[in-house]
Amino acid sequence: MTLLSARGLTAGYGPLKVLEGIDLDVNEGEIVVMLGANGAGKTTTMRAISGVIARHGEITFGGHNIQKVGPDAIVRAGIVQVPQGRGTFPELSVEDNMRAGAYVRRDGSGAVQADIAKWFELFPRLAERRTQRAGSLSGGEQQMLAIARALMSRPRLLLCDEPSMGLAPLITQELFQIIERLNRDEGLSVLLVEQNANLAMHMASRVYLLETGRIVASGTAAEIGADDTIRKAYLGF
């Protein structure tokens, strides 16, 4: 079943048009990967879906049109973004960062605290550092915190923008294993932007390839990986 659908999506920054009318779907329970060079429009796509920049076209989520819905309401609907660069609150503790992720919820402090405990089990490093300032964490730990904070809003769709940026390969593999576990065990749908095409392809249900604001190829990971022309021209392996 289709969870997120975008049709003719255009977006940009002031007079600069970045997206040229893309069509994109994420189904329930999928990990969908967007690949492309820097400047292709991947982050802009994420921001447009999240409602933080002006966009045109049609966007539906769970069967409801969210084209004119603001960012807070989009989070309440079940879409949350882990932005490029992590975006944690450096002066707040790990636990307070996670609590901040629940700002849209109305189910009481007990339920919020229960979710903090749940995600500390998934991220034991964060549990060990729960009172530590977020700004003092390593890059990998900050990325884990950014994901944990996003999970506190109880999303149906997680938008992850370049989670491996600046991280060591072993930490990247650990993060990707966590994303796969969330997808498998929690039924969380994921739209992932990632420069590490080889690693991302191994976890993807489907792949979209962007070039200068347009989708130039899409298909299952197996289909995209089997196309020698696409692999050599766009994926680098």
Rank of each mutant, 00 (worst) to 15 (best):
A148R: 09
A204E: 12
T10P: 01
S218N: 09
I22V: 15
I147T: 14
Q113P: 00
G78C: 04
L16N: 14
Y208I: 11
T2Y: 00
I31A: 08
H56N: 15
F176T: 02
A77L: 12
G225W: 05
R7I: 05
L210T: 00
D72R: 13
A40K: 02
E28Q: 14
G85I: 02
D72I: 13
A37L: 04
I22G: 09
Q195R: 03
N198D: 13
G166T: 04
I116K: 04
F123T: 09
V82Y: 09
F123P: 08
A221Y: 06
N27Y: 12
N65T: 05
V82W: 05
G41W: 07
Q177K: 15
L3P: 04
G213K: 03
Q132W: 05
E194C: 05
Y13S: 10
V216G: 13
V104N: 09
L199S: 03
R181L: 13
M46G: 04
G41K: 01
A77T: 10
N38S: 06
K42A: 06
A217L: 05
L9R: 07
N97F: 08
S218R: 10
G12N: 07
C160W: 12
S136L: 12
M34G: 03
I59M: 06
G51H: 00
A54F: 10
L199G: 02
R149N: 10
A226G: 15
H202L: 13
A221F: 02
D96H: 11
G213M: 02
T172Y: 01
L145W: 04
N27V: 11
A233H: 03
G62W: 01
Q177F: 01
M46S: 02
N97Q: 12
M144K: 02
K232I: 00
A100G: 09
G70R: 11
L175P: 06
